[in-house]
């Protein structure tokens, strides 16, 4: 019956959408997180949940605490002697800020890619296998498989499959950055932290990285710091706006970029300060 099909269809779609919404589980619970460098409080009482298999963008002017926040998640700030944390970051029922956390294991689970591509001064192949060998994986067949899989996931395989034993420095900037992502993926992380991963790249390489990030969302939860508002609005599902260490607004990206609740968010995304 035509009529009934027409009335039922949109409802089914709606229900489907709702089911998808429900499936978004929380991967990280940030609870009253503060991060200090000596007396300076860089992150102030941040509290919000980060969705699994979603892209969360952190935006805000320089010095607002977003990169400190990002580095706080996989305890990179531990490398800074005067840095200390308060509050909790809950990941799989564990507080990542616990003193007894094995940070090496943590950084395997929660990998990071930095602003400037930083490949090791080794071949493309060895860049990916370096950490694997450290963890005792030495069988060539096994390593070959991981290299191919990681490079494929980072959308780099076709471009470098004939150059695996050339120096990583012979790659272009965009390729180097994708190699760094591949290197992170080789450790089979759950969460990817990206600190302005494409700000040092040309527009084409930038577009490739963005496409890659969107693909990776299927398998990973991604948190990305970006100064590029268009990038945040294009690729992220949720956006957190940081200002002077505080999370001013955290919401669906669509909401943040079309009708933000907070005047300061609006001023920042419209380019009135920052």
């Amino acid at each position: 019956m035509m009529a009934s099909t027409i009335t039922i269809e949109p409802q089914t779609n709606k229900n489907k959408k709702r089911e998808i919404d429900k499936q978004k589980d929380t991967i990280l619970e940030i609870k009253d997180l503060s991060i200090f460098y000596g007396d300076n409080q860089a992150v102030k009482h941040a509290t919000f949940d980060i969705d699994e298999h979603a892209i969360t963008a952190l935006i805000g002017p320089s010095g607002c605490g977003k990169s400190t926040f990002l580095r706080g998640i996989n305890r990179m700030n531990d490398l800074i002697p005067i840095a200390r944390n308060e509050g909790q970051i809950i990941y799989e029922d564990i507080n990542l800020l616990d003193k007894n956390i094995n940070t090496i294991a943590l950084r395997k689970e929660i990998g990071m890619v930095f602003q400037k591509p930083n490949p090791f001064p080794k071949s493309v192949y060895n860049n990916i296998t370096h950490a694997l060998k450290f963890y005792g994986k030495r069988k060539k067949k096994q390593l070959d498989e991981v290299v191919e899989e990681s490079l494929r996931k980072a959308a780099l395989w076709d471009e470098v499959k004939d150059r695996l034993h050339e120096s990583a420095f012979s790659l272009s900037g965009g390729q180097q950055q994708r190699l760094c992502i591949a290197r992170t993926l080789a450790m089979k992380p759950n969460v990817l932290l990206l600190d302005e991963p494409s700000s040092a790249l040309d527009p084409i390489s930038n577009a490739k990285i963005e496409e890659l990030i969107l693909q990776l969302k299927e398998d990973y939860s991604i948190i990305i710091v970006t100064h590029n508002m268009q990038q945040a609005s294009r690729i992220s599902d949720k956006t957190a706006f940081f200002l002077n260490g505080s999370v001013i607004e955290y919401d669906e990206t669509e909401k943040i970029f079309t009708n933000p609740a907070h005047g300061k968010t609006e001023d920042y995304i419209s380019g009135r300060f920052g």
Partner: peptide
């Protein structure tokens, strides 16, 4: 100018 939100 690639405006967003109210400017857009």
């Amino acid at each position: 100018q690639q405006p967003v939100a109210t400017d857009l």
